[in-house]
Design a protein around this nucleic acid. Structure first.
Length: 297
DNA sequence: CATAGATCCTGTATGC
DNA sequence: TGCATACAGGATCTAT
């Protein structure tokens, strides 16, 4: 499941292989893949056809391919989100179509094409206008509602700590809220909480400033290590832009480790249902708040 | 307004 | 063997 580190690996791959290239043809093979593009698939294809990609950027789990400006028109970008199973692949022309190929981009003067492949179709692409971010940068209008991510040089730690401690909600919910900090998903939330020995059910507004700062440090540490290793992969659905699987899953301490011994204390890692998904944690290192003990027996 | 919950989607794994 | 069910979960929409 692509979270920030995986999306960053994809961004780097696209930046290397697709930046500077002109798109000569677009084939939308499944309308759901461009459902966020309000004007429809035909409009999507016509807006991209003939354009050159000038940069590849990312905020949180969103990435976008900026299209070289056309005189007099608003600056546009292809905005993408991989959802749970999305991949952006650069494949040699003629490579057998993947079963879940959704969109194909033919690139000028290249023996390769860009493909958006997505089994579960939670991901998608759209063309969107770039707007000012208020701090001298530009980003797609449809991405402006999410916060900067913790790897962003302009991320404000103090603002984050204040925002977390103002939330009347469980800390794991707050970590997953992309308007507080973007890029954190279920996997890295569990890993960061484990590192900081915090139970995800704790009240965010009950945490002290230093504890929240420590948690932010854990988020950065776990994401940084994943990035060094090229992203996480669990079910082979996620592969980077060249089709190679990431392998950070070998380093997971909590996520998916139900029944295996905690790396700190040896207590079996537990799994509980949470927000229609799973949470993994050490019941000894990460003590549950009062009133939630019963959920863990 | 803030927060919680339902929903979308399909392949794989598991149970009876 | 075959069918039904659970599960994976990010973003968005609806409800309270």
């Amino acid at each position: 499941m692509p979270e920030l580190p995986e999306v960053e690996v994809v961004r780097r791959g696209l930046d290397r292989w697709v930046s500077g290239q002109q798109v000569t043809a677009v084939e939308v093979r499944h309308p759901r893949a461009v459902r966020r593009h309000q004007a429809g698939a035909v409009d999507f294809a016509s807006r991209v056809r003939g354009r050159r990609v000038s940069a590849v950027s990312r905020r949180g789990k969103y990435l976008w391919l900026t299209l070289a400006a056309v005189d007099g028109a608003p600056q546009e970008a292809i905005v993408g989100h991989l959802g749970m199973s999305g991949q952006l692949l650069v494949d040699p022309v003629g490579t057998l179509d993947q079963a879940h190929l959704r969109v194909r981009f033919i690139l000028a003067d290249m023996d390769y094409e860009l493909r958006f492949v997505d089994q579960r179709t939670f991901g998608g692409l759209a063309v969107d206008d770039l707007v000012d971010d208020g701090e001298g940068g530009r980003l797609p209008a449809s991405v402006a509602h999410i916060a900067r991510d913790p790897m962003d040089p302009d991320f404000d730690d103090k603002v984050f700590v204040r925002a977390v401690r103002a939330r009347h909600s469980e800390i794991k919910r707050v970590l997953l809220d992309q308007t507080v900090a973007s890029g954190i998903g279920n996997i890295y939330a569990d890993e960061a909480l484990w590192r900081s020995r915090i139970h995800g059910g704790r009240a965010a507004n009950g945490l002290t400033g230093p504890v929240v700062r420590d948690l932010l440090g854990s988020v950065r540490a776990v994401m940084g290590e994943a990035l060094e290793q090229g992203g996480t992969s669990f079910d082979a659905l996620y592969v980077n832009v060249n089709g190679e699987s990431g392998y950070f899953d070998r380093s997971l301490a909590a996520y998916g480790q139900e029944g295996l011994p905690c790396g700190r204390c040896g207590t079996p890692i537990r799994r509980i249902a949470f927000m229609n998904r799973s949470s993994y944690f050490c019941p000894v290192c990460q003590r549950a708040p009062r009133g939630q003990r019963s959920r863990e027996r």
